[in-house]
């Protein structure tokens, strides 16, 4: 029986998408904070904004793939026998998907609605069209939504990581191991 089909492990596609998303989202969060708070050179900040925008579209694409992968592959059985923990885990995954969607779309709206007409170029390879017309009021609202969604993701990711570590170190179950490629399961 293939590991993905034994009902205890996530599918290889889901595992790959999970870690790629983790890398992309953590890079986006770090870039976002650095470019808005730490960089004092305009050109550097401008360049980081363009990378941030490009990575945002990577995150959006990965999110679509993850939702598709979740829909076509089996979700492994949760280890926890406590009902509220199972519900919390499901809610956490849903919230991470939702806030990633909100953060990326609100970022796209912000970049489109700004009155500074910098085209959205995906890693300088091709131009991604604006999703809305220039609109300063909308930019302000979208930027606020982007900030709230971003900080929500930071909190959710922290809880998500702590929960995974709690399963691994305290409960000593396979919750974390089954998300690791070729990680041997304890039971």
């Amino acid at each position: 029986m293939k590991p993905a089909e034994d009902g205890r492990r996530w599918s290889p596609a889901t595992i790959a998408l999970h870690w790629l998303s983790a890398l992309t989202i953590i890079s986006l969060l770090a870039l976002g904070l650095i470019m808005t708070h730490a960089i004092t050179d305009t050109a550097q900040r401008f360049d980081l904004y363009q990378v941030h925008k490009s990575l945002g579209f990577v995150a959006l694409f990965l999110l679509a793939c993850r939702v598709a992968a979740r829909m076509i592959s089996r979700t492994p059985t949760a280890f926890s026998v406590i009902a509220w923990e199972r519900r919390a885990a499901t809610a956490m995954h849903g919230a991470l998907y939702l806030f990633t969607f909100v953060a990326t779309i609100s970022g796209w709206v912000t970049a489109s609605a700004t009155i500074i007409p910098v085209p959205i170029q995906f890693f300088r390879l091709f131009t991604i069209p604006n999703i809305v017309a220039s609109n300063p009021a909308l930019e302000k609202q979208a930027s606020l939504v982007h900030t709230v969604a971003t900080w929500s993701i930071i909190v959710l990711v922290a809880v998500h990581v702590l929960a995974a570590l709690k399963h691994h170190l305290v409960d000593r179950d396979d919750t974390l191991r089954r998300m690791i490629p070729d990680g041997s399961l304890a039971r």
Partner: peptide, 15 residues
């Protein structure tokens, strides 16, 4: 020259 290729491209653009 405003400090980077990306920013230069924007400054030179129709904008």
């Amino acid at each position: 020259n405003a400090g980077s290729d990306g920013l230069n491209e924007f400054v030179r653009s129709t904008a």
